[in-house]
Amino acid sequence: MIEELSRDVLGPLVGAVAYSAVGIVLMVLGYLVTDWLTPGKLGELIWTERNKNAAILLTSNVLGVGLIVVGAIWASEGGVVRGVVSTFVYGVIGLGAMAIAFLILDLLTPGKLGDILTEDELQPAVWVTAAMHVALGGVIAMALS
């Protein structure tokens, strides 16, 4: 009975907690990377100044990271520890890819994407950048499966 309880309840519970922790850590890292790539303080832009451009960009980053985490969990094999470690590694790779894609898009387009975030008017370039984040998260997630 205790063996069944451990296998059926405690094992999945430990996995859910561990994967949740990794997901939270990766989303915090995604926030920090986005904050680093953009001028000003992202939290202040979104929560104090209510800047829609910054909110759209951060939302796309969270969704992209979420897709990567889901894909890494889906593809993980070999127990919780191995799965959690591989999820973290793939998540960091995904964050790096999103940051590089942001910088490349910034080089290929007029103006500075980071500066556009601080504008009060809703900017179409932010939607393009957001789509790139979500799409790249999906690509990385599918590459894992």
Rank of each mutant, 00 (worst) to 15 (best):
L13C: 02
G71L: 03
W74T: 12
L5A: 11
N51K: 05
Q123E: 15
P110S: 14
L113W: 07
E121L: 11
V134A: 13
L58F: 14
L10V: 13
K41W: 13
L144R: 11
E77W: 02
A75T: 05
R82T: 04
K41T: 00
S60V: 08
T38Y: 02
I68N: 03
A21I: 11
I116C: 01
G138V: 06
A125S: 15
D35H: 03
K112F: 00
E77Y: 10
V69E: 01
K41H: 15
G71F: 02
T38Q: 08
V89Q: 07
A16W: 08
F102A: 07
I116V: 15
A16Y: 09
M132R: 11
L10N: 01
V81W: 01
L108I: 15
V126E: 07
Y90R: 02
K52A: 12
S145T: 15
A18W: 00
W74D: 05
V28E: 12
V134Q: 10
V85E: 05
T34Y: 04
D35G: 03
L103V: 07
G96L: 13
I116P: 02
A55E: 06
G111H: 12
S60T: 07
A16D: 11
I140H: 07
L122H: 11
I116R: 14
G71Q: 00
V28I: 15
G40S: 08
N51M: 02
V9P: 02
V65Q: 05
T129Q: 12
V69G: 00
G43N: 13
S86K: 07
A135F: 15
Y19P: 02
D106L: 02
Q123P: 05
N53F: 01
R50W: 01
M1S: 01
L67I: 04
V9T: 14
V126H: 04
L26H: 00
G137A: 14
L122N: 08
G40A: 09
S86L: 06
V80P: 01
L45T: 02
L58Q: 01
L10C: 00
S20W: 08
I2F: 07
T109Q: 10
A101L: 12
E121H: 13
I2V: 13
L58E: 03
P110R: 14
I73M: 10
L136W: 12
A75W: 00
L144A: 11
I116Y: 13
G40Q: 10
L42N: 07
V134G: 06
V81F: 03
L45S: 14
T118H: 09
I46Y: 02
T48F: 08
A131R: 09
A55Y: 04
Y31M: 08
A72G: 08
L57R: 05
I116K: 14
T34H: 06
G83V: 10
V89R: 08
D106T: 05
F88G: 07
V84Q: 00
H133V: 11
A101G: 08
S60I: 05
W127E: 12
G91Y: 01
L103K: 14
A131M: 15
L136Q: 11
I100A: 14
L136M: 14
H133S: 10
A141G: 13
S86M: 09
M142G: 10
L37P: 04
